[in-house]
Amino acid sequence: MELSEILSRCDHTLLKQESTWEQIREVCDDGLKFNCASVCIPAGFVKQAGDYLGDRLKICTVIGFPNGYSTTAVKVFETEDAIRNGADEIDMVINIGWVKDRRWDDLLAEIKAIKASCQGRILKVIVEACLLTEEEKVKMCEIVTASGADYIKTSTGFSTGGATREDVKLFKEHIGPGVKVKAAGGIRTLQDAEDFINLGADRLGTSAVVKLAKNEHPEGY
């Protein structure tokens, strides 16, 4: 698989708590240079990044991150605020406790509310697969499909594990038409990236792939 194809599926990501604007700006520059799908950055930097990038590159941010246990009203407000500041795509974290309590209707209602707040923008639903049983993963595929969200996403990268090949395969087998898969967390090598794409991931949440590309092609694409 061509490196350029892998890069075009990458949400070039920097979500560390200690991230500075200088680091965020570098991520934006690299995202542009390597023709990434988007940059995924903290909400507090979205407006600054939007002013810097204009319409040259899509900006993604995260809602209810990383724990997912904010109220629905708070997540909706976060989404609306992010969009006012210029976010093009939203990645939201579900309430994992609601999964454990089998509060399926509440989970569906929350995702639908956030999708409505996206005003037509792409919504990716982070289910934190490392904390779920296989039965719960399959159920979340059904709920994300029913919600009208655009993607199911494996992980925040801030819990006990990241994307696995098994989870991407499972999601691909159980999501409905029109729903895509984003693999995130622990994607360290180009082989990882290619494997996830071949298994059905349409997007990758990663910073490592661009760093590897910079080593091989410092001039960009």
Rank of each mutant, 00 (worst) to 15 (best):
M1P: 10
E2L: 15
E5I: 09
E5R: 09
E5P: 01
L7R: 00
S8T: 10
R9D: 08
H12D: 08
H12P: 10
T13M: 14
E18C: 09
W21V: 07
W21E: 12
Q23L: 04
Q23A: 05
C28K: 01
D29N: 15
L32G: 06
N35K: 10
S38A: 15
S38K: 07
S38R: 04
V39P: 05
V39C: 08
P42I: 01
A43R: 08
G44N: 13
F45K: 07
F45C: 15
K47D: 10
Q48W: 08
A49I: 01
G50Y: 12
G50N: 11
D51A: 06
D51W: 03
Y52K: 09
D55R: 13
K58Q: 13
P66D: 05
G68H: 07
Y69L: 13
S70N: 13
T71G: 12
T71K: 07
T71A: 11
T72N: 05
T72D: 06
D81P: 00
D81L: 14
D81S: 12
A82D: 03
R84N: 06
N85S: 12
N85G: 02
G86E: 02
G86V: 09
D88A: 13
D91K: 12
D91A: 14
I94M: 02
I94G: 00
N95I: 06
I96R: 03
G97T: 13
W98A: 11
K100R: 13
K100V: 05
R102G: 09
D105P: 13
D105G: 10
D106N: 11
I111C: 05
K112V: 12
A113F: 03
I114W: 04
A116C: 07
S117V: 02
C118D: 07
G120W: 02
G120Q: 06
G120M: 09
G120C: 09
V125N: 01
A129E: 10
L131H: 10
L132C: 12
L132V: 10
T133E: 09
T133L: 10
E135H: 14
E135T: 15
E136R: 00
V138Q: 01
M140I: 06
M140G: 04
C141D: 05
E142R: 10
T145D: 09
S147M: 11
G148D: 05
Y151T: 07
I152D: 00
T154K: 02
S155D: 03
T156I: 02
F158V: 03
R165H: 12
D167Q: 03
K169G: 01
K169Y: 00
K172R: 15
E173M: 11
H174C: 02
P177D: 11
G178I: 10
G178F: 08
V179I: 12
V179C: 11
K180H: 14
V181W: 01
A183Q: 02
G185R: 00
G185M: 01
G185V: 00
G185F: 01
G186S: 06
R188T: 07
L190S: 00
Q191K: 13
N198C: 09
G200D: 06
A201W: 01
L204C: 06
G205M: 05
S207Y: 06
S207Q: 01
P218G: 11
P218M: 10
E219Q: 11
